[in-house]
Design a protein around this nucleic acid. Structure first.
Length: 243
DNA sequence: CCGGTTGTTCAGCG
DNA sequence: GCGCTGAACAACCG
């Protein structure tokens, strides 16, 4: 169950298959499995929540959505959407979206939008936010064209960290605050990555699914918000709205 | 035990 | 063609 950092972990766990040949490809995904069989994995890449298995002429795009799961070198008691078998080991995906990308990935993906990428560009994010001044902060942090890889947890935690009310239109943010929001999104994503690796992510949540604000010790508000209509946890005292 | 959800896509409608 | 809404999908946790 994935936000960007979780997909980076998946990439790291599966880099053992780079340079390996797919001996058998199966599963319930409606793709032409014969395009994968006999092919070598050239690279494993990610773009936000997209997990990309790159072959010579085609890329397999896996999106785990809300309920997807995977097993490496083992299987679950469920039908896989995609199952890749190698001489040694296997890679299995369940309840996820599987698509083939035939185009050049550089034409499909704006790498500078990926909050986990080396190519991430805060300047580019700022430009996009400035182009949508009416967009609410809670929606901006879920916009995959701007903050690819950010999800509902990152959204809530980042807004709390920078003391920003989720309903603030991004166009109302003072320049310094806008910069801080962008910077903290990437920063928190890497904290998320480290905590997730250590299995201590939950322990570090400040507002997400929490009852009380750790700063103010007053009840955290839980509300469905924005165009994205997602649950948002926030503190009405220390997260300021700019009007 | 069941309500809720770390997400996206698409049909249908005005 | 547009934006908006709700449905659909799906599996596990607390």
């Amino acid at each position: 169950m994935p936000e960007g950092p979780s997909i980076v972990i998946l990439k790291e766990l599966t880099e053992q298959f780079v340079g390996k040949k797919i001996l058998e490809a199966g599963g319930s995904a409606k793709i032409d499995m014969s395009l994968l069989e006999g092919q070598m994995i050239v690279a494993i890449r990610t773009w936000g929540k997209h997990y990309l298995i790159c072959l010579k002429d085609v890329t397999v795009r896996i999106h785990l959505m809300l309920f997807g799961s995977y097993r490496i070198n083992e299987e679950r008691d469920a039908n896989p959407r995609l199952s890749l078998k190698f001489k040694k080991g296997s890679l299995n995906f369940y309840a996820c979206s599987v698509k083939l990308i035939e185009d050049d990935l550089d034409d499909v993906y704006d790498w500078s939008a990926d909050i986990m990428s080396d190519k991430w560009s805060a300047t580019s994010a700022k430009k996009k936010l400035k182009a949508h001044p009416d967009m609410l902060a809670c929606d901006a942090l879920l916009d995959q064209e701007i903050f690819s890889g950010s999800g509902n947890i990152i959204k809530c935690e980042v807004l709390w960290r920078v003391r920003l009310h989720p309903l603030t239109p991004v166009g109302n943010l003072p320049a310094a605050k806008l910069t801080e929001l962008i910077k903290e999104t990437r920063h928190y994503a890497f904290d998320f990555l480290e905590w997730k690796k250590q299995f201590v992510l939950r322990k570090h949540w400040a507002v997400y699914s929490k009852k009380k604000c750790p700063r103010c010790h007053i009840p955290v508000i839980k509300e469905v918000m924005g165009k994205t209509k997602r649950r948002t946890f926030y503190c009405n005292n220390c997260q300021l709205i700019y009007e």
